Amino acid sequence: MPLLWRTKSNPLALWWALLTLASIANIAVWFFLYRELHSQALGGSSGIELMLLLCAAYVFGCAFRSVLPRADVQRICLFDHWLSSVFVGRSVATVAEVCFVAQWAIILGQLGRLTGADTTLNIAWVIVPLIVIAECCSWYAVLTTNYLYNAIENSIWAVAFLIVGVALCRLLPEFHGLVRWVLVAAIAGIVLYLAFLVTVDVPMYLARWKDGLADGSKLLGLLEGLRDVRTRWVVTHDITHWKGEIAWMSLYFTGAVWASLALCACYSLDDYLPRYRTEAAAVSWTAPSLPHAVSSDMLLGAFSR
């Protein structure tokens, strides 16, 4: 494999090296979390085990796409290998992205049940189906090379995380101290993400779609596109071909992965959340209590039987 492009004079090589280093660091953090939290999973907290699994799918999936980056509709990549095919990359991305939003759904469900916030619980149920629809739009865009469906896909992501932000805002009055600050930080991150989607990402895909209409670019049929994504990839080390991808890929493979890791860590703190409930919220809503004679061990025993 030619190595000439991987020189200090090529900014694309530096970008790829930074993505690769970030991926290695992210994987190391995941293994650290696994070591620290797996004991809780062994203790019977299957929720943590599921969160670790979902986080692994996203962290390792993004690492794979960082080491072998590709732009799906353009069919361009950095390395001439069958793993660089769009079919492989899009398949990995689909699994990883559904797992990522499933993490958000689990966290919202955890906080919604603790606080009795119906708004948060309802949003937890909605966001995964929304992203499944977005993934279908993404696949249609990739197969047909129709950028309009990339714009629709990212618009659905914007709607999904807009309502996630609403769910987190609903939780703000329920907590104080560190938990409230974590919620504020998450909301701020979502605001920045939405701003990027609305001002950069979606307009970029709409502009590409309009350019394609203007120059009469031929769209592919679904079967033709399926064959194309499996067999055609164009290796290019020209920075001009990647300029439109570098911004979103850099944010996606760093900030979004850090969010996934943070969700996994936050979920493990379930036992600490009640102490950060605001006094008014704790008084206004309490979980239904069992008779004093019934212990949690007895309840678990009944279910096990």
Rank of each mutant, 00 (worst) to 15 (best):
C99L: 03
W242Y: 05
T115S: 10
T286L: 13
C137R: 04
V126P: 00
I246Y: 04
L4R: 13
A256M: 15
S66R: 04
A102C: 10
A41T: 11
R208W: 07
H38K: 14
T240V: 08
T145G: 08
C62Y: 10
Y272N: 07
P11F: 07
H38P: 08
D228E: 14
A124W: 01
E36I: 15
A22Q: 01
L114G: 00
L219T: 07
I190P: 04
L53R: 11
H237D: 06
C62L: 06
H292A: 14
A102R: 00
G177S: 02
A141S: 15
G301F: 01
G165C: 11
A57W: 00
T199Q: 11
K210S: 11
E279V: 15
I131W: 09
L183Y: 06
V86F: 04
E135C: 15
G116L: 00
T278F: 04
N154S: 06
Y252V: 05
S295M: 07
V92M: 00
E279W: 14
Q74T: 04
L197H: 09
S23R: 01
W82E: 09
R75W: 05
V101T: 10
L206H: 03
L50D: 06
A96R: 03
G61D: 02
A256F: 14
L168K: 03
V164T: 15
S260M: 11
S284C: 11
L219D: 06
L299A: 12
L12K: 00
G177Y: 04
I127G: 02
A117V: 09
R277H: 07
V126F: 14
F87Q: 08
V88L: 09
W139D: 02
V294D: 01
E49R: 15
L194M: 13
W5V: 03
W242L: 00
R227K: 14
C137I: 07
A17V: 05
R232N: 14
R170S: 14
R277N: 05
L290R: 13
R208P: 01
D215M: 01
C266M: 12
F196V: 12
T115E: 03
Y140F: 13
Y272Q: 09
D201L: 14
L300Q: 11
P291K: 06
W181D: 09
A167N: 07
S304R: 15
Q110M: 15
G47C: 02
Y149I: 07
F60G: 00
M51F: 08
V88A: 07
D118H: 15
P291G: 02
L206W: 12
K8M: 11
A185E: 09
L18P: 02
V92E: 04
L300K: 15
E36F: 15
C55K: 04
Y267G: 11
C55R: 06
L183H: 05
T115D: 02
V92H: 01
D271F: 11
L223E: 14
T145F: 12
V98H: 06
A57G: 08
D118C: 10
W16G: 07
R6G: 00
W248S: 14
A151Q: 00
H292R: 13
P173W: 08
V182P: 03
H237P: 05
Y276V: 07
S304L: 12
V73Q: 07
M51Y: 09
